[in-house]
Amino acid sequence: MRTEGDFIKVNEWLMPLSWLYGVGVLVRNKLFDLGVLKQKSYSIPVISVGNITVGGSGKTPHVEYLVNLLKDRVKTAVLSRGYKRKSKGYILADRTVTMSDIGDEPFQMARKFDNVYVAVDRDRRNGINRLTGDSETSDVDVILLDDAFQHRYVKPGINILLVDYHRLIIYDKLLPAGRLREPMNGKARADMVIITKCPKDLKPMEFRVLTKAMDLYPYQDLFFTTIEYGELVKVWKTDSDNGGTMTNEQLKDMNVMLLTGIASPKQMVNDLSPLCKSITMMAFGDHHAFCRKDADRINEMFATMPLPRIIITTEKDAVRLEETDGLAEEVRNALYVQPICVRFMLGQEEDFNNKIISYVHKNSRNSILAKGKNDHKPKDSDNTGHRPGTISFRDN
């Protein structure tokens, strides 16, 4: 039987190092709280999506949810660090950019959303300044910061904290014993907290237990989301593929190799196991850069599996596999992507959407929603109090 927090493993023998790490994090956060280290707020709406746990909380599908919510209403930009990219500095995605230039997750979003700016910059302040100041992106209305909960030099208008149901921060420990980037009390900075990857069959009592366990402040909103899987899509399509998709009905007779380079593949194993004949797992580290040696291993393992067989991978793994040399033709023909999206539970979708749209409506510089309704444009500031151009749930 699954329970919340069931993927957590704590290495007790590393707790002394976690204590030292915690002291460093505490000092850094206190310097921001006291204003010694300066935060900057912006007149343009800035929404941050991040977590306290290292990897695997579902940031990308939640950012994509926000993109889908906003892209037809306002000019939207996504700003990411571009983890493990081979470039430096600010880069705006265009048709010539490669996965190596901007990283797998930004590349995935840039390819998926044509009318959205996707940029990478480790210095988020510089990235925001470039997006709002460069002529090619100066019409941007709202910026979504991907994985920026600990990037406190920027003060977002809405700070969204994601917490994996299977790795609840209330049960975890600081790095390196556990996987927390900072102490659990850091959740107080969030305006919204979303418990992600919830089982679809959660009972009302379980929602109440989770709500009490998270122990949020009155100014914070708590939401619950679950993962929805789309039809499998073939990575390398041919004319004979008839659309290149595979339904659950077709999948049930398949022997599946689940090929991943993500932080938490166990959820996918649990979800896909009932849908297919068997699963053979091949897991690499998060954001793994596949090489020729990896391709040889994949080829060898796939060749030993019984027929009929396919390979399922994630969207961000697929963009890296597409640049990998040495994959056998049989592997390429059998490789499918498992698209995922998020769905809000308890009928919370409308409430969440309204809060996001209302914030953007009230604070966007150029938004068609705000045109003629909000002529006063607040200025940037470096103070750490309530900032102009943002909405604070703490005051509502």
Rank of each mutant, 00 (worst) to 15 (best):
S48H: 10
A263V: 03
E249F: 00
T137P: 00
V67W: 05
I227N: 15
K362I: 02
I298N: 02
N115P: 11
K277T: 11
V140L: 09
Y117A: 07
V36W: 13
R73H: 13
R181L: 08
V120P: 02
S358H: 15
R343K: 09
L69F: 08
A190V: 12
K316R: 13
L162Y: 03
V193T: 11
A93Y: 05
N51Q: 07
T260E: 05
D395G: 04
T137W: 05
H166Y: 10
R332Y: 00
K234C: 01
V360E: 02
F7C: 10
F107D: 01
N29L: 05
M281T: 13
V27M: 12
T226Q: 15
T280D: 15
Y117I: 04
Y153S: 11
G24H: 09
Q108K: 02
Y117C: 13
D172C: 03
S57C: 05
G389C: 09
G347W: 08
E206N: 13
E315L: 01
I44L: 15
F352L: 02
N366E: 08
L69V: 12
G55L: 07
I52Y: 12
G285E: 14
I44H: 15
S135Y: 01
E300K: 10
G389N: 07
K9T: 06
L70I: 08
D147C: 06
L79N: 04
P218L: 15
R124C: 03
A77C: 06
F207G: 00
K38A: 09
L272M: 13
L168T: 14
M301L: 14
M301R: 04
G127V: 12
G157Y: 12
L251S: 02
R81E: 10
L335G: 01
N396T: 00
I391A: 14
V25K: 14
E4A: 11
I195G: 03
G347M: 07
D121E: 06
S57W: 03
A110K: 01
A283V: 14
M99F: 03
F344D: 07
D104N: 04
D6I: 06
K59L: 05
T226N: 15
P308G: 09
P156T: 07
L210H: 12
V74S: 12
R85I: 05
Q250E: 10
G285C: 07
I195L: 05
I169F: 11
Y153A: 14
G55I: 04
N159E: 09
V209F: 12
G389T: 11
G230F: 02
I102Q: 03
V74L: 05
S43A: 10
N366L: 05
G261R: 02
I227H: 11
V49N: 03
Y90C: 02
D239C: 00
Q150E: 09
C276V: 15
R387T: 12
R343L: 13
V142D: 01
A188G: 03
S135G: 00
G82P: 02
I47N: 04
M99I: 01
L34T: 13
K40G: 05
P306Q: 12
P45R: 13
R2Q: 07
R95Y: 06
H361S: 03
R179G: 01
G103H: 01
K293P: 01
I310Y: 00
A328H: 04
N248F: 02
D296Q: 11
P183I: 08
R320Y: 00
R95A: 08
Q39F: 09
K237F: 01
K88E: 08
V78K: 05
N29W: 07
R332K: 11
N126W: 09
D380F: 06
